Amino acid sequence: MTYRWLLPEYCEDILPEDAWALETARRKLLNLFKDRGFNLVIPPLIEYVESLLTGTGHDMDLQTFKLVDQLSGRLIGVRPDITPQVARIDAHSMNRADINRLCYAGPVLHTKPDVLSQSREPYQVGAEIFGLSEVTGDIEIQTLMLDALSELEFNDVILDVGHVGIFRGLMEALQIDSKTENDWFKLLQHKDIPSLQSVTQGVTAEFRQALLSLPKLNGGGEILDLAIKSLPATPKIMVALEQLIAVRERFNNRVKLSFDLCELRGYHYHNGLVFQVYSADYKGALARGGRYDEVGSAFGRSRPATGFSLDLRQLITFKR
């Protein structure tokens, strides 16, 4: 017997109470973004796969539903993430010379839920700044992210910050090949210090000690002072530490801060500060963001970029 009312696994209707809550929250966030000078864009649900997945990495490719376009015969995908679409709009459709602040709100579709308690159809809301390379852009986005969560009544939160430039600076200084870099990256993600000790035996003492110290450099703002003493003063590392210190100075009296110099989330996508917000009573991150300069180069225009996003559907479900 066919039950025509059944939906695919991890897909569900949003019924009136939650639907109104989501719509009310969406309006609040978009009004906030508008007040801060961000312009709303609404990208299409489907795009050609090669543009849809630009710069997103292998994991997002696996999360993308793909089908053949009956008009062109080309492979298209249902968007799993709106951020690359907004980068395309900035680089091609708008093509501004000045700083461009864009925001968005809409559903995305994943082949599998990120965790078993989530829907395969998150409702992604976010904001991006293009054309601003200074750390002030990252701080502006982090401020907006915290204010957005405050609008959703998430106030007792932790801002967790890392910087992929530190690990990249070490790899460049050592002139490490891509395979070795990827192997060491995986060990750092698992904070596997014994294995890291084994594979770095041939590395000069200063840089080996720096690599081994990264998994331990996590905690409050004081770890940045320790990092200055522990890490080689290469230009890329010093810039990264200066940006982390700027974040500490801006938010130290507003929100609880946590720094993790081994946090390399989105390493093949981000190229600077990465950040996420946590709450003691919420499993997982409330919102995530980071700097992803040069992503627009695939669309013919390379620009500095930083932004954040959150799954409004999941946050509203948690609050009910």
Rank of each mutant, 00 (worst) to 15 (best):
Q85Y: 01
A87L: 13
A87M: 15
R88F: 14
R88H: 14
R88I: 15
I89F: 15
I89M: 15
A91V: 11
H92R: 09
A97M: 05
R101D: 03
P107T: 14
V108E: 02
T111F: 00
K112W: 04
D114S: 10
D114I: 08
V115T: 10
S117I: 09
R120L: 13
E121R: 15
A127G: 14
A127P: 12
E128W: 03
E128M: 07
I129Y: 06
F130Q: 03
F130I: 03
E134T: 15
E134I: 07
E134M: 11
V135M: 04
G137S: 10
D138G: 12
I139P: 07
E140C: 10
I141Q: 06
I141D: 02
T143H: 08
M145I: 00
M145Y: 01
D147N: 10
A148V: 06
A148R: 04
L149F: 02
L149C: 02
L149N: 03
S150D: 15
E151H: 15
L152Y: 08
L152K: 07
F154H: 07
D156N: 15
L159F: 00
V161A: 02
V161F: 01
G162Q: 07
V164G: 05
G165I: 09
I166S: 05
F167V: 08
F167W: 04
R168Q: 14
G169F: 01
G169H: 05
G169D: 02
L170E: 05
M171S: 08
M171G: 03
D177K: 12
D177I: 09
S178A: 06
T180M: 12
E181N: 04
N182Y: 12
D183W: 01
D183Y: 05
W184S: 06
F185M: 04
L187H: 08
L187C: 11
L188P: 08
L188S: 11
L188A: 12
Q189K: 05
H190P: 05
H190N: 12
K191H: 08
D192V: 11
D192S: 12
S198Y: 04
S198H: 09
V199D: 00
T200R: 02
G202V: 06
G202H: 10
V203K: 00
E206G: 06
E206P: 11
E206W: 03
E206H: 10
R208N: 00
Q209W: 02
L211H: 02
L212Q: 06
S213R: 04
S213V: 01
S213E: 05
L214E: 07
P215W: 07
K216H: 12
